[in-house]
Amino acid sequence: MKIKILVAFIILGIISCQNKDKTESKSIIKTIAEDTLSKTVAGTADVSDAPVKYDKAVELIRKQLNVLLKKDLPALTKQDRFFYYEAFDLNNDKKDEYFVGFSNAYFCGSGGCSGFILNDDGSLINKFSVTDFPIYVTTSVSEKFYDLIAVSGGKFHLLKLKNGKYPSNPSVQEVVKEEASRESAKVLDIDGKKLEKYSF
């Protein structure tokens, strides 16, 4: 009987030691996490070892923008050299096209902003101007590409592909009712989706 009681005490001692080790381990992890969080919030965390986020589409767009905007580059400030993008398969070929937009004073004016539509290989489909974001992708098709609706001057304009290009100035295209955009997918919803901003 004494042996059974002794064995029971030994087992209880081992269990309590293991629980103490787990509690200490959790406490250490919690302390490290809280310290890292406070340093991150304060801006003192060392993130020099953080891996650089590589995005194939971003690199492709960045490279193309440096070509397309070669003449503009000397006039651009550091704050002007940012873009947003969103991918969308415009022609159902299982390859995304890229909508690229800007939201700074260099690329935007009272009529809207400039932007580009690029193929999945980075080649230019279209440059457009005086457009407010988002752009709407309709279900109707012209030349195997979805028609677009762009807002310009507070009006909704229908953009159809013609000879491999969308119109570059939406403001002079056919005006459609706002209801036409409600059934459409939104791309480059810069404010609504809080899209990530990238430098180029």
Rank of each mutant, 00 (worst) to 15 (best):
R62E: 15
R62L: 14
Q64T: 05
N66H: 14
N66I: 07
N66F: 10
V67I: 11
L69Q: 09
L69P: 10
K71Q: 09
P74L: 08
P74T: 00
T77P: 14
K78Y: 11
D80F: 08
R81I: 05
F83Q: 09
Y84W: 00
Y85V: 02
A87I: 02
A87M: 01
A87S: 12
L90E: 01
N92S: 13
D93V: 08
E97I: 01
E97R: 06
Y98R: 14
F99C: 10
V100E: 02
G101C: 08
G101D: 02
G101H: 08
F102T: 04
N104G: 12
N104V: 03
A105F: 13
Y106R: 04
Y106K: 13
C108R: 12
G109V: 00
S110T: 11
I117L: 15
L118C: 04
D121T: 06
G122F: 08
S123P: 08
K127S: 11
V130T: 10
I135D: 09
I135S: 12
I135H: 13
I135N: 10
Y136T: 04
Y136N: 04
T138G: 10
T139P: 09
S140P: 11
E143F: 10
K144F: 13
K144T: 15
F145I: 11
Y146W: 12
Y146H: 15
D147Y: 13
I149T: 13
S152K: 06
S152E: 07
F156W: 04
H157T: 04
H157E: 03
K160L: 02
K162A: 02
K162V: 05
N163L: 10
Y166H: 04
P167T: 08
N169M: 05
N169F: 05
V172Y: 07
E174F: 13
E174Q: 15
E178C: 12
E179F: 12
E179H: 05
A180L: 12
A180H: 07
K186P: 01
K186Q: 02
V187G: 00
L188V: 01
I190E: 03
I190Q: 00
G192D: 07
K193R: 01
K193P: 02
E196V: 04
E196K: 05
Y198F: 05
S199Y: 03
